[in-house]
């Protein structure tokens, strides 16, 4: 099985896929795997395996884009496999100290009757499209993702970054559907709170 390149490539590695490009893809892969796995050694292994499989598989690629898409496809499978293996020996728990403190922070937004505290009622975020074009926003977003506790992050990232459906996420994590929903809601609430505090309201406070 091989990709049909639009032009015959010279034998060996096509010139467009040089060491600098592989190094660049490797960096992006490591960032992606580290966000998912929260374990530098595991992330390194997953990236190495995926790159080796991609570059020694005898595949031909029509270009850089095709290569990158291919290796990230392999990396996704490696990451899910690793999470699945780990969740067999160390089940992902929906409840731990880090998770408790996120839940407490979330609960504190509400009054006893479970409606918003007036001071914490969500306000409209002004011009989010402009934020998504601002490089400073992405630094904040990256920091907010990195601050999620490990188990919460793994479940959330499987859903939003590996694009698994909820059933696949729960199965890989070895948890019930209802725990899955609890964790995803917790992750979204934490990220929402983090973006609000560190970005959307950060410039609006009087000094």
């Amino acid at each position: 099985m091989s990709y049909h390149a639009p032009y015959p490539q010279p034998t060996g590695e096509p010139a467009i896929i040089d060491n600098a490009f592989v190094e660049h893809v490797r960096r992006d892969m490591l960032a992606f795997a580290q966000l998912q796995l929260r374990d530098a050694a595991l992330a390194e292994d997953a990236v190495q395996d995926a790159l080796t499989a991609a570059l020694t598989g005898g595949q031909e690629f029509a270009g850089r884009s095709a290569l990158k898409t291919w290796v990230f496809g392999i990396l996704r499978h490696k990451i899910v496999d690793l999470i699945r293996q780990q969740s067999r020996t160390t089940p992902i728990s929906a409840f731990g100290d880090d998770e408790d403190s996120l839940d407490q922070a979330f609960d504190s937004l509400f009054k006893e009757n479970a409606h918003w505290q007036p001071a914490h009622r969500p306000a409209a975020w002004g011009d989010p499209e402009a934020s998504l074009r601002d490089k400073h926003f992405w630094a904040v977003f990256d920091a907010c993702l990195t601050h999620l506790p490990k188990n919460t992050a793994r479940v959330f990232m499987m859903r939003e970054f590996l694009e698994l459906d909820t059933g696949e996420v729960c199965t890989a994590a070895g948890i019930s559907t209802s725990n899955c929903h609890v964790i995803l809601h917790r992750a979204r609430s934490a990220l929402r709170g983090c973006l609000e505090k560190s970005w959307f309201l950060a410039g609006e406070r009087p000094c």
């Binding site: 960032a31 850089r64 290569l67 990158k68 898409t69 998504l132 992405w138």
Partner: peptide, 16 residues
């Protein structure tokens, strides 16, 4: 992060 030649289309920088 995962896209091929779409880079630079959105404002999102590769975090690495």
């Amino acid at each position: 992060l995962t896209g091929g030649e779409e880079k630079g289309k959105s404002g999102a920088p590769a975090p690495s």
